[in-house]
Amino acid sequence: MEKAPTEAEFHAKFKAFYTLQDNEATRLKQVRLWRRLVLEDFARQQQQQQRSQGADAAGPSVLSLDSFPLFTNAKLDRALDAAGRKAVADDLVASGHGQWHDAGKTLYVFVKTPSEWASIIYDFVQQNGLGGTIYTVYELHSGDLTRNTPIQGIEPALCIQALEILENQNKAEVYPSDESLDETGVKFI
């Protein structure tokens, strides 16, 4: 017997889940459950997009605080209050899963954080001996090089954030491009 995870139970049945809780410990749990809901939802969206449109279509995942569908539950006649939405967004940013796009209104959501991507990319480079050659971001997210790996389809902006993390760790050199994000180059060390 499979059962819905805890966050889905709260989301589907619990009206108080849509009011940001005053009790600090409860509020922390509540925000953590919301984080999981948001990330699961974006992961699902991305998989669907990749399946139906191919890797090239992957654009950045944007969450709008006003209109993110999961924030509203018509069946329960509840919608997450403004303070709750702000708390969820702040938590996403603090945990590395979000970055403000239009401060207070929209943010980019990263199902995997840039540092998680950094280690995925670096492991891939190590396993395939790709050190020393220059690659473009385009090659990483859409090239034959990464076909059938999780890196295929990564958003360019996110990819660059991950590469910058590697650069800070002296594992890569990043060559920014004035033309486009896709043409940013990288050499792994």
């Binding site: 139970e9 049945k13 619990f14 108080a16 889940f17 849509y18 009011t19 809780q21 209050d81």
Partner: peptide, 25 residues
């Protein structure tokens, strides 16, 4: 943490909700 508060009730009276009773956890 045994009960949560719902402040969006129709009559404006806060409702105290008990996850231990309402949810399958």
């Amino acid at each position: 943490g045994m009960t949560w508060v719902d402040k969006q009730t129709k009559d404006g009276v806060p409702a105290y909700e008990f996850p231990s009773i309402q949810l399958n956890l």
